[in-house]
Design a protein around this nucleic acid. Structure first.
Lengths: 218, 218
DNA sequence: AGTCTTTAGAGAATTTTATATCGAGAAAAC
DNA sequence: GTTTTCTCGATATAAAATTCTCTAAAGACT
């Protein structure tokens, strides 16, 4: 088996997206007192092919036992370890409007690999206020702070009009990955990773699935 | 050419996710006074292969002219038409916390195929209040109203503890597609479409991209 | 007019991702 | 103790998505 931690092999994105859902299912099962779990069980619960589940799990480097499956805690640990949930990366969030607050309060992201260590906003009225334990700082302090604290992840939750401005600040501060919730494309220096959380894209998929489903039933 | 509107052909999901970004780019270009646009230009702007852009666009049914490309307004219209942005589907939103409010105010979804016609919440303190022009209704009216109004889309923006409950109400009301922002899997009747907006999955992808990028540069 | 460059469009080739098959091992049933 | 059943893990096949290649058409340039 190929140990995931010691090589730079490319992980299929679909696999990366599925792993958290496995983990989530496992926490539920573990809460029910389940001790071990098989790929077939996971597949059935999540409507996935068992072979696919097995391949995804194999990537995390764990070995299972025939007839039994995987020890549920070992498997959870393996996924956590593989996804880097053990040592969260620091992140800055910009924009504490509704969306920003939702992200801050969404769940303990720090248990899922990311620690939002500071929040920023351009609105003077919000500076100094406290949201979910983070004091809001003025945007113009972002670049300096990011550089001093070696923060690598920036989350953009501002209106699209100012998103590029915020992105520029982030890049100036040495941030290497931007999680962009604003519905605009960002122009950043080469090497900086931008991941767009595009609701319109999701909506397009949903609409299409609904349309084809209703078309078939009529 | 295969006219998209008159057949139930399966559209690749990646294509569906890319089309909105093309449209967005086109609005920007149109604002700059651009008259026609080629796949190469789009590809360069969005970091995509030109051939891929061309194939995506071809699915919407438009024809371009060699050397020129596509008329920018025709192309926008073609995408809008293909994605059904011309006749939005009605939707109910449940949960007007931070996330729900963010969705309500996110942008005019009704220009992108979905019209959020009502908002619901289980919290009596929120009932009757107005958010972005929608009065909040009590959750127990959802099923009846959905059935009466033939609403087919439900948006879940509640804490994960109550998400299943809300989903049940939606299914009871005849809703056929659920856009789930709660970080839980939902158990619904067969035939009901569930689209999970899984932030942890996105985060896993982002983390991995960052990790492999930093690993390579070190 | 003739040449050159750019581009759409169609199809082939490649890559990626998903599914199916098979053998071996481990527990449970008999 | 033997058989049955279930599951992992590896390999093979299939499907999906992306990229490449080629041709013809449209404009630009000489």
């Amino acid at each position: 088996m190929y140990m995931a931690t010691e090589n730079p092999m490319r992980i299929p994105e679909p696999t990366l997206r599925r792993l958290p859902s496995y983990h989530h299912l496992l926490t539920v099962l573990a809460g029910d007192g389940v001790q071990s779990v098989s790929c077939s069980v996971i597949g059935r619960a999540l409507n996935l092919d068992a072979t696919q589940v097995r391949k995804d799990i194999a990537i995390t480097g764990i070995e299972g036992k025939p007839k039994v499956g995987y020890d549920i805690y070992d498997l959870m640990g393996s996924i956590e370890n593989f996804l880097g949930w053990n040592n969260p990366k620091q992140a800055f969030l910009v924009g504490v409007g509704n969306l920003g607050q939702a992200i801050l309060g969404y769940q303990q992201f720090n248990r899922y690999g990311m620690d939002i260590v500071a929040a920023f906003d351009g609105d003077p009225g919000k500076i100094g206020k406290d949201f979910y334990g983070r004091e809001v700082l003025p945007l113009d302090k972002l670049a300096n702070l990011a550089r001093r604290m070696h923060v690598l992840i920036g989350i953009i939750a501002v209106p699209k009009e100012v998103a590029q401005l915020v992105a520029d600040q982030m890049v100036a501060g040495g941030i290497q990955a931007i999680w962009n919730f604003a519905p605009v494309g960002l122009d950043v220096a080469p090497g900086v990773i931008v991941q767009n959380e595009d609701l319109f894209a999701s909506l397009a998929v949903l609409s299409n699935r609904l349309a084809t489903a209703t078309a078939q039933s009529s």
